[in-house]
Design a protein around this nucleic acid. Structure first.
Length: 600
RNA sequence: UGCCCGAUGGUGUAAUGGUAGCACAAACGACUCUGACUCGUUUUGUCUAGGUUCGAGUCCUAGUCGGGCAGCCA
């Protein structure tokens, strides 16, 4: 059990009630090895909310020298697709890379649980394969269909399950209401032999969808509606993306999940709060089978909510389908693929997970905390570069055309031994338009008529003349450069209040830059009305920037900071060699409150 | 209103009957060739009412407020 050291790039993980509980189990020697699992249904893309669960489950495995199985909970062929199993696998591996990849539990490719002959029910078990022991793949609940079926038959034999002929509507009516007991199904007392026969015929495909179901025989009057003879199997004449067309009956979540956990030897089955009321059913199924190995236990925690973001699969899908975003991996999406493309390092997401903790309180995390985690991660990593998003031309009148003043720029001041790169100051250059104000607001530390600023890595300049076009728009500034204030020159230490970033007009190259802002204008888009009404119309602004020459060679995966602007990354899809397109990951923290009017 | 769960500064959390602490945010200040980073200071908190106890954020009772549960979804 090793707490994470700050040196490894993430803060020490604080403990939480689940970690405490697992630690107590370990201390009591209850498990040979901790085995957790991350069990997504392959029916959508993973998002930051899933990341919290991944970090918890893999974190637990990591802290106890255990493993975390990646398992696809694929029991509903109608909603699932192989596209999602691929994207989910990719995203999980990206999130845990360099952190918990050694804890990723996979099984031998194609393996299914082998029944160990026992005295009663055969004991189905499927363990993870060690890395390097041949080809491996994720676990799939659909690989357990045969085992699950055998367990269902066993439940029938024990009189704990029955085939019910009620229609879906009738089943619903018989269930009663939360404050009203249900009524027993007229088929509840069928003989074991009849149930066995009917269930076999269900499997054989003799009945149409919905005609019959297999139900647990528990208590139709239970105050917990999930104990009112819940369905275990339904008839679905549908092919399955992983199991093929062998089956026309499919197990439901409650039946498949606890047994999948058992089959894999999961010690701690951790899920979100809405499954709390399912826990008695989880335990009932496992206990009803008299299974020989130790039973897994379910624990619940609150899912992640972050202000200005939505996480529900339904809403994410709507954003994509309504073309409110450019796809699942649009950098504004809270999906892991979107975050990756946005330039958010996996470690920043892990850092966030550690910062928010794990509780049963239904919280709303401030987006600022996420942005903090991102900056914290990027600051020591990002190469500093100069880029001007909205160029304003400056002519240094005391420099000759073609004259070049050699400058040296630091690649990352956070680096204990920073490297540098050369930069050339030329007669014509660009500064950020918002860094000049003809009529400056109070405490404007930037350029104004007659004022002085330092050009980062170069020298102090002084604004002599403001050139405007017929419409009165400022088109050009004529300044003089004080070359004695360059680094190494006698006046290098002269202080001026502002330092600006700049790019040489002769050496700078144009580049598309995408400025992303929050996707929604309100903290809780889903709180009331249609969340789509709150989409921020200015969540994406595309500008043609002028960037320093070194940036022409930027590659996707390079973490960059455009000085004074924010963190940026080349877009992994739209960048071409020599013609990068940049995404703004997050802006720099801006403590200057009276923002200039040009600022959004 | 049947059952289940929860409530600690603006936000997220810690304190496991014994000094209410941390982080984010905010404000102010120092430093600064990034109004960044870093550093310092400050503001703000145990839902309510009873009870147990030498001592309660923590245990008990009642209440208030919030969330979840009635798919042949997961």
């Amino acid at each position: 059990m090793s707490a994470e050291s700050p040196a490894s790039g993430a803060p020490a993980a604080p403990t939480d009630f689940i970690r405490d509980l697992v630690a107590a189990d370990v201390a009591a020697g209850r498990h040979a090895r901790i085995i957790t699992r991350f069990p997504p249904e392959p029916n959508g893309y993973l998002h930051i909310g899933h990341a919290k669960s991944i970090c918890l489950n893999f974190g637990l495995a990591r802290e106890h020298g255990g493993i975390c199985h990646l398992r696809f909970d694929d029991t509903n062929p109608a909603k699932e697709d192989i596209e999602y199993v691929e994207s989910i696998s990719r995203d999980v591996q990206w999130l845990i890379a360099g952190w918990a990849d050694h804890c990723l539990g996979l099984k031998p490719r194609g393996a299914t649980p082998a029944p160990a002959p026992g005295s009663g029910t055969p004991d189905y078990h499927l363990a993870a394969a060690p890395a390097g022991a041949g080809e491996r793949e994720a676990f799939f609940a659909s690989d357990y269909f045969e085992a699950l079926h055998a367990y269902a038959v066993e439940l029938i034999r024990r009189g704990k399950a029955y085939v019910c002929d009620l229609t879906p509507e009738e089943t619903d009516a018989y269930r009663g209401a939360p404050d009203q007991p249900g009524r027993d199904s007229p088929f509840r007392n069928r003989s074991v032999a009849e149930n066995l026969d009917l269930f076999a015929r269900m499997r054989a495909g003799e009945f149409p969808n919905g005609a019959r179901s297999l139900r647990a025989r528990i208590d139709m009057a239970s105050p917990n509606v999930w104990l009112r003879d819940p369905l275990l199997y339904r008839i679905r004449h549908t092919a399955h993306h992983h199991a093929g067309n062998r089956w026309c009956i499919y197990p439901l979540y409650d039946f498949a999940h606890c047994l999948s956990d058992y089959i894999e030897g999961i010690t701690h089955s951790i899920c979100t709060l809405e499954f709390e009321v399912h826990r008695p059913l989880y335990d009932w199924i496992l206990q009803s089978l008299d299974l020989p190995r130790p039973l897994p236990h379910q624990y619940e925690f609150a899912k992640l909510n972050i202000s200005y973001l939505v996480f529900s699969k339904r809403r994410l899908l709507q954003l994509v389908e309504d073309n409110l975003v450019a796809g699942w991996d649009d950098p504004r999406m809270p999906t892991l693929s979107g975050a990756r493309r946005r330039g958010i390092p996996a470690a920043a997401i892990r850092r966030l997970a550690s910062l928010v903790g794990v509780t049963k309180y239904d919280s709303l995390t401030d987006l600022a905390l996420f942005e903090h985690a991102i900056r914290e991660e990027l600051n020591p990593l990002a190469l500093r570069r100069l880029a001007v998003l909205r160029p304003l031309k400056i002519v240094l009148t005391n420099l000759a055309p073609g004259e070049e003043i050699a400058c040296t720029a630091t690649n990352n001041p956070q680096d204990p031994a920073p490297t540098t790169r050369p930069l050339a100051l030329t007669r014509e250059l660009f500064i950020e338009a918002e860094d000049f104000a003809e009529v400056p607001p109070p405490k404007f530390f930037r350029l104004k008529p007659g004022g002085e600023v330092r050009l980062k890595y170069a020298c102090i300049i002084s604004c002599q003349e403001v050139i405007k076009d017929a419409a009165g728009q400022v088109t050009e500034l004529r300044c003089t450069a004080d070359l004695t204030t360059r680094s190494g020159q006698p006046n290098a230490d002269r202080k001026v209040k502002g330092t600006l970033h700049w790019v040489s007009a002769t050496h700078g190259v144009p580049a598309e830059v995408r400025l992303y802002d929050r996707l929604f204008t309100v903290p809780e888009p889903a709180a009331s009305g249609d969340f789509r009404d709150h989409v921020n119309p200015r969540s994406l602004e595309t500008v043609t920037a002028v960037v320093e020459p070194a940036l022409a060679a930027a590659q996707p995966g390079d973490y960059l900071q455009f000085e004074r602007l924010g963190y940026f990354v080349p877009d992994s899809k739209d960048s071409a060699p020599g013609r990068p397109v940049f995404n703004r990951t997050v802006s720099l923290k801006d403590a200057w409150t009276p923002k200039p009017p040009t600022r959004a």
